[in-house]
Write a protein that binds this DNA or RNA. Structure first.
Lengths: 272, 272
DNA sequence: TTGCTCCTCACGTCACGTGAGGTGGC
DNA sequence: TTGCTCCTCACGTCACGTGAGGTGGC
């Protein structure tokens, strides 16, 4: 006994997938009709495919990329499938949180709230540190730093060392200009240390910088960058090299974002 | 005194907008540099543009379309601007809710929960109704129906009439196949009524249908469509004409989705 | 001089949608 | 025969990203 043939139109109504979408899914091999007429090219589907179509619609409604949908559909067992689904749901939760942050950041901007401190010009002393370097996208940089500082702290712990100052990071201009670039996460220490894994000892030479302390969430850091950059440009001091950040008060210290402090250091050619 | 000129790279770092994005915003006239060098083509921005750039970034982070961003930027006063912003935030809230529904619907599908009733074949008696017809996208159909039933109820109220049965709607196949098409929302009444505004009296002729009552949220209606359509196709009864829904228990009756009941009526050529 | 920043095209991406122009079966 | 369903291209959409190939100023 063969299954009932369903035309593309019928199948569309049963799955709420548009006919255009169904043809596209056929093209990319996500959901091929059970049969295609040699002569007319008419597609036909079978009832067993309806549930798959309904699953695809739900996943696409949640903006899951087609390749990920394919992974769910082709999962060899329900454990694998559920893992892929759970991973996507986690990503959605994360994006939800980011959206909430973005709304808060927007509100703060249009309300004109936010702290504007005073720009200071100073030399940063040379220092030895334990560092991890990587090519990171602006989008991922927060997670990347969290992982990096964890690794650095464990490494120093194993060596019986304690950081001699706040955590810092260097950002190549490309991190902002093309939204991906070299980032160095570091914890300052007094002297060279042996490399291990991603962690290496690193010497940061002295630099002259303009600095401004950012008060509040990381999502609003651009405002401090703006104020600082404008001041530096207005004085004709714009230097080259990475931007440095010092993490003075972080989410690890307090969940109250208004208390967070990040010192932004913008390279300058010389002290004014 | 003229403002400090900022290179595209500097401006990028101060706004967290990529250089490519800034060139794109110039192309589409969303954020033109204060000056462009005739000879070299170099763009230069001024400090006064930094806050605008930061606003644009926040709005784009929230997936606001560029045309809407333009409306915010070009708003003549803060009241207008805040209205556009508030409207976008409302849309975001709605999408959040939809996402939650989609997740629930996905969970229900993979867990295989859901009610499967028994398909019934019957004739729907001809009836007179008060109706509103429109060309509606699948995405908007829920809101459209809510507004339509409100209008219909007010109209009947003004005439001193009471519906003689549950609310219903007709859906052209295109609503599913191209995600937009003719929809008719109606409230049955005993006799013709005069038209007024969008509301008109309408006669629905008798039709033979296969019906299945959907239990639960509208987001899961496709599952009932699937079960019903398969049954109809398997019996070779597929007819033409719009699909009809009868809203037996709705969110207006109870917030408990599991109690909602929607009768789906699939047109057939004849009773089996 | 080298390296750095900036420039303009042309084309790619993603997941379809839009339309033109045409066929097959009742 | 008409209308309906279905078909295949080719191109468009949206907001940029990806290169290629090249210029200008220190």
């Amino acid at each position: 006994m063969t299954s009932t043939a369903l035309s593309i139109g019928e199948f569309s109504r049963m799955t709420y997938l548009s006919v255009k979408a169904l043809r596209h899914y056929h093209d990319v091999g996500l959901l091929a009709p059970a049969q295609v007429d040699d002569r007319t090219g008419y597609r036909s589907y079978v009832p067993e495919q309806v549930a798959t179509g309904q699953l695809i619609r739900r996943l696409r409604d949640l903006d899951m990329p087609i390749e990920d949908v394919r992974a769910v559909i082709d999962a060899p067992d329900s454990t694998t499938r559920d893992a892929v689904l759970a991973e996507h749901l986690r990503r959605m939760e994360r994006r939800l949180e980011e959206t909430r942050d973005a709304v808060a950041s927007l509100r703060a901007l249009v309300e004109g709230s936010g702290h504007t401190g005073v720009v200071t010009f100073r030399s940063i002393e040379p220092l030895w540190c334990a560092a991890i370097e990587g090519f990171v996208s602006l989008e991922d940089v927060h997670d990347w730093l969290l992982a990096a500082y964890g690794e650095l702290a464990r490494h120093l712990g194993a060596l019986g060392l304690t950081p001699s100052g706040p955590a810092g990071a260097l950002y190549a201009a490309d991190v902002f200009e093309v939204e991906a670039g070299d980032v160095v996460a570091y914890l300052p220490i007094g002297a060279p240390i042996p490399a291990r894994g991603r962690v290496s000892g690193r010497f940061l030479p002295a630099v002259d910088v303009a600095t401004l302390v950012h008060h509040g969430a990381f999502a609003d850091l651009d405002r401090t960058y703006g104020a600082l950059g404008v001041e530096v440009a207005a004085r004709g001091l714009a230097g080259t090299g990475p931007i440095r950040e010092h993490y003075l008060v972080t989410p690890a210290d307090t969940p109250d974002e208004s208390q967070h402090r990040t010192e932004v250091c913008w390279p300058i050619t010389h002290l004014p």
